[in-house]
Design a protein around this nucleic acid. Structure first.
Lengths: 247, 247
DNA sequence: CAAGCGCTTTGATCTGTGTCAAAAGCTGCT
DNA sequence: AGCAGCTTTTGACACAGATCAAAGCGCTTG
């Protein structure tokens, strides 16, 4: 069971216990691409989906691999990232329950994906999903809406990476995490921040040290509190928002 | 006719001369969302499209405005950008002939759009286009593919903004411009670079001065040549590629 | 419950890029 | 041709954040 983090675990177990419940009992359906589906369509999705569980720190796929599968995250946190040849990494996104993984879908994955925490996904073979999308246009339309949101998010992130200071980046990051937690029905105020300082740094275009120092500074200024269990309390949300939107 | 650059020109003229030719004669159709349409569908598109011409430096729409229109660029160059309250700007993309404008489509535009050169577009009312998309699923599918490509591009840009040096950014920028020119059937080697140093800086997360210095350095090292007419010759494409992909 | 190990925090110093300033080129106008 | 108003280039200096280094803190494990 000692899979080294980051390596593929070929025997990521099919989660037999989850299958009986399937889509009908899916707790995050309203957040996903499956949201607009009526019963027949949902049954069809159910038929082609397989459920999988990954431990924390496992590779799901790598940039450049043929993109055979697409995923719906039903539990946990995933990071997606790109690498430069010398090892510099850019985390381009974090995915949570309800998010769709595999959108930028050419024949090959445009990025690597790795779990941050224990994660459950719903997996589809690309060809089978494509077929379903043709059969149920509302699903395709939903995917287009999702793609639009991701595009808007990506642009927001470009603004952050290209033009914001370290403090602004951290404030923005915490607020976005908090908002997403809220829409997903999780705690928005003590925000759960499951990813490491390194992951945050690679997401915000900073170094671990700068991330740590900036957290400390925000704490000292009374804007946040670092609580045990990777929780961050946003003590002064207004001030954070002001910093995030410009300073 | 002296519209100050960046302001909306309410009388951006409907280009009457273009209408008779319309979609059937569209030189960039194979690049656009209209590529997969058969005759009937194309006629339907034709019926809801209006053609417009913008001079260089004109505003097309602003971030936050209700997104009533979507566009197909048929000629020229457009930049899209986001602003922070204190004026810092991030250009999140440049659009050329064949590109679709308005994808990240919620009810409001997620960014502002402004022409860089004289530009011609094909404009659709959002509601009418949506209707067409429902009628012609291959068009919606095409849009999804386009969105996927834009997403992949956005992630590449995040990698650039978060992790590349100034020199790597400029090299990457020139190569991407060159590749896009090629696929659009324009000159790939002396690349046409119509945007100002300021626009490039705001796209690459740098300052004008750094962009200028870096161009000079690449020129000194013999990797590029700056030619009149905003043309840049990529004298040593291999070296540029090596710098761009990592250094 | 001590030891080991990875992650985070803190400290000291360095550097790539930003900032401020001015000179050099272009372009259009008179 | 010559000036006005730009954009671009070049120069000198400053600083936010990177780098290098070491100490602190939890976990896990035996």
């Amino acid at each position: 069971m000692a899979t080294s983090p980051g390596r593929r675990d070929e025997k990521d177990l099919i989660d037999r216990t989850a299958i009986p419940q399937a889509c009908a009992a899916c707790g995050v359906r309203s957040l996903t691409v499956c949201a607009p589906l009526e019963d027949a369509a949902l049954a069809a999705v159910d038929a082609i989906a397989s459920r999988h569980t990954f431990e924390a720190g496992q590779n799901i796929f790598d940039e450049g691999e043929p993109s055979q599968h697409l995923f719906n995250v039903t539990k946990g946190t995933i990071k997606i990232y790109k690498l430069l040849a010398d090892g510099r990494r850019q985390v381009t996104g974090f995915l949570f329950a309800g998010d769709f993984l595999g959108l930028a879908s050419d024949s090959a994955y445009a990025y690597s994906a790795e779990t941050v925490t224990e994660t459950k996904v719903c997996r589809f073979r690309r060809g089978q999903l494509d077929e379903l999308l043709q059969r149920y246009p509302q699903m395709e339309r939903r995917l287009l809406v999702i793609a639009g949101h991701e595009l808007a998010e990506a642009q927001e992130q470009m603004l952050l990476l290209g033009r914001k200071t370290a403090k602004e980046r951290i404030a923005s990051f915490l607020l976005v995490l908090s908002r997403r937690a809220k829409t997903a029905g999780r705690s928005e105020d003590p925000v759960y921040v499951p990813m490491s300082r390194t992951d945050i740094a690679d997401y915000l275009g900073l170094t671990t040290e700068t991330v740590s120092r900036t957290f400390t500074k925000l704490k000292t200024e009374g804007l946040i509190q670092l609580k045990p269990g990777n929780l961050v309390a946003l003590s002064d949300r207004e001030a954070l928002a002001e910093i995030a939107e410009t300073a």
